[in-house]
């Protein structure tokens, strides 16, 4: 069952990658920007563990970079670091409930933006601070909305006890 779920999660990750390129780019209105792969990697880390989160993050990021990236390997690096940080925060003792997931997505989105800006700055790209400020404000909110779509999709097929706190509480 676990192997089936992991294969399913990998297929979903590839689907999100395709959707990111063919569909989500059209939704980019007035700085609205969704990162399907980042949210999926966080979801996978929470469901399958940090090892799978890091490996899937690496594969997803690398595929994205190979298809459209300026700096091949940067997205892979960002997703892997995000997966690891998510696992560390959960280990600290945060409860697995919806507020925690929202916080994790907020934190990792901010982190991914900062890392990518730093790398692009190192590679001599111009940085527009106004644009960056707007992204810092808007992108986390967009990705938080995705939590409510992607997380239930990832948990489809899982056991009721594995659920993310969206649905039922077991009756006493």
């Amino acid at each position: 069952m676990k192997i089936f779920l992991r294969v399913l999660h990998f297929l979903l990750l590839v689907l999100f990658l395709i959707l990111q390129l063919v569909f989500v780019e059209h939704l980019k209105l007035y700085h609205i920007n969704f990162d399907l792969i980042l949210v999926a990697v966080i979801g996978i880390t929470l469901m399958d563990g940090v090892l799978y989160g890091m490996i899937y993050g690496f594969i997803g990021g690398l595929l994205l970079d190979l298809m459209v990236g300026n700096i091949v390997g940067l997205s892979a690096l960002i997703y892997v670091i995000c997966a690891f940080i998510v696992s560390r925060i959960i280990v600290i003792g945060f409860k697995r409930k919806i507020l925690t997931y929202v916080f994790l997505v907020f934190l990792t989105t901010e982190l991914s933006l900062i890392i990518s800006v730093l790398f692009y700055y190192l590679f001599n790209y111009s940085i527009n601070m106004k644009e960056f400020g707007l992204e810092i404000l808007i992108n986390p909110s967009c990705n938080i909305i995705l939590v409510f779509i992607i997380f239930p999709l990832l948990q489809a097929g899982g056991l009721r006890k594995d659920e993310f706190g969206f649905l039922y509480k077991e009756k006493a």
Binding site: L51, F58, I71, V72, G73, L74, A76, L77, V80
Partner: peptide
């Protein structure tokens, strides 16, 4: 420890790819 090793390996791999 295993996760930390995997993280370091992947980060090094990413930096090589970049």
């Amino acid at each position: 420890l295993r996760n930390l090793i995997v993280l370091i390996v992947i980060i090094v791999l990413c930096l090589i790819v970049i």
